[in-house]
């Protein structure tokens, strides 16, 4: 396993006018579960291909444990990858699939059996050893594909390219749990690429939000959610994303705009943000009181607030904001104390 560093990493496709990735700077600790979260077009796949060695950087460096691997092929970097759909050798059994990356490196049969058994126990796929991939379900196949990425003990980095996309929703949770457990037990450095914020925030120890403008923020899921460094992060992460109002609306002097999450506001007749209820979406009940997401029509546009939902559409209410983040020029310049 290795710590990963991107040092002013840039990439431009041949014939393109602009860089797809520009001056990316990122440090990933050895054994860390890191998620790269980005919308489509943010350059996720390009970054993935740079890490796995399919593409070579046109600027900057990629360091594995302070060794420059920018120019090395994927098989020399010892990068394993799990793809969007399970990629297995269909004519080989599950055991042979898991053993294959070790066999090509001429490991002894005893060593192979030891590693395969270890990884299989970790992922709970030992019972599948004798079967052919064709007889497995999609999520079982993907587990085997993950296992195949983990059998080699000298793997520097495991790349996961939206590995849950093809898996049916009910199985996603179980597969993610298996992945998390394996990651923490084996201490593997993993980079999980996804456009799904739930997957990113629940999988990773740290998350990087990638856009066409570069990495906007790297931090723990908590930090990303609680204090987004950029308006886009606040907007992109969370469901729904942050509400934004002009700083003057709350009487905040520094900064241009203020962002607050739907659960950071309370209904308060004396609150500074007034509007009428446009729609209500029920979400749960707490102590018999219906809770929901209320969307208000205000002079700042639509504002969402999570609140008791015993109100009627069309009613005029006002909001008090308990906690907020202040932005200037799209980036964070301050925030209120935690309420």
């Amino acid at each position: 396993m290795a710590g990963i560093r991107l040092d002013k990493l840039s990439f431009r496709y041949p014939g393109a006018d602009t860089n797809t990735l520009e001056d990316l700077q990122l440090d990933i600790a050895n054994g860390e579960a890191h998620a790269l979260l980005g919308a489509s077009g943010a350059g996720k796949t390009t970054l993935l291909n740079l890490l796995s060695g399919i593409l070579s950087p046109t600027g900057g460096r990629i360091l594995f444990d302070s060794e420059d691997v920018s120019a090395l092929a994927g098989r020399i970097r010892n990068v394993a990858q799990v793809f969007q759909f399970p990629v297995l050798y269909e004519s080989l059994s599950v055991f042979e699939n898991l053993a294959f990356p070790l066999q090509t490196r001429r490991a002894s049969a005893a060593r192979i059996a030891e590693r395969v058994d270890y990884v299989s126990a970790e992922l709970g796929i030992a019972a599948l050893h004798k079967r052919k991939p064709g007889t497995l379900t999609l999520s079982e196949k993907q587990l085997v594909a993950v296992g195949k990425a983990l059998t080699r003990p000298d793997t520097s980095l495991v790349l996961l390219d939206e590995p849950l996309t093809a898996v049916e929703p009910r199985k996603k949770w179980r597969l993610r749990q298996a992945l998390l457990k394996a990651q923490s037990d084996l201490g593997v450095t993993m980079i999980y690429v996804t456009h799904d914020q739930t997957e990113a925030l629940t999988f990773a120890e740290r998350v990087s939000v990638l856009t066409a403008d570069g990495i906007l923020q790297t931090g723990t899921p908590e930090e990303i959610y609680q204090s987004p460094a950029h308006e886009f992060v606040g907007h992109f992460v969370g469901s729904p994303g942050m509400n934004f109002v002009p700083a003057s609306a709350l009487g905040v002097a520094h900064g241009e705009r203020i962002g607050f999450r739907p659960e950071w506001a309370l209904i308060d007749a004396q609150g500074p943000i007034a509007g009428s209820i446009k729609r209500i979406r029920m979400q749960s009940t707490e102590n018999g009181v219906p809770m929901g997401l209320i969307t208000l029509d205000t002079r700042f546009g639509e504002i969402a607030v999570r609140s008791m939902a015993n109100l009627d559409v069309g009613a005029d209410i006002a909001l008090r904001v308990n906690r907020y983040v202040v932005f200037a020029g799209k980036t964070r310049v301050g925030e209120s104390a935690l309420a």
Partner: peptide, 20 residues
């Protein structure tokens, strides 16, 4: 991805032909 995976697994050309 089948070729990429084989490359990562260290498969040689014959193995790529026979297994993929």
């Amino acid at each position: 991805p089948f070729y990429q995976a084989a490359e990562i697994d260290g498969a040689n050309r014959w193995q790529i032909f026979r297994l993929i």
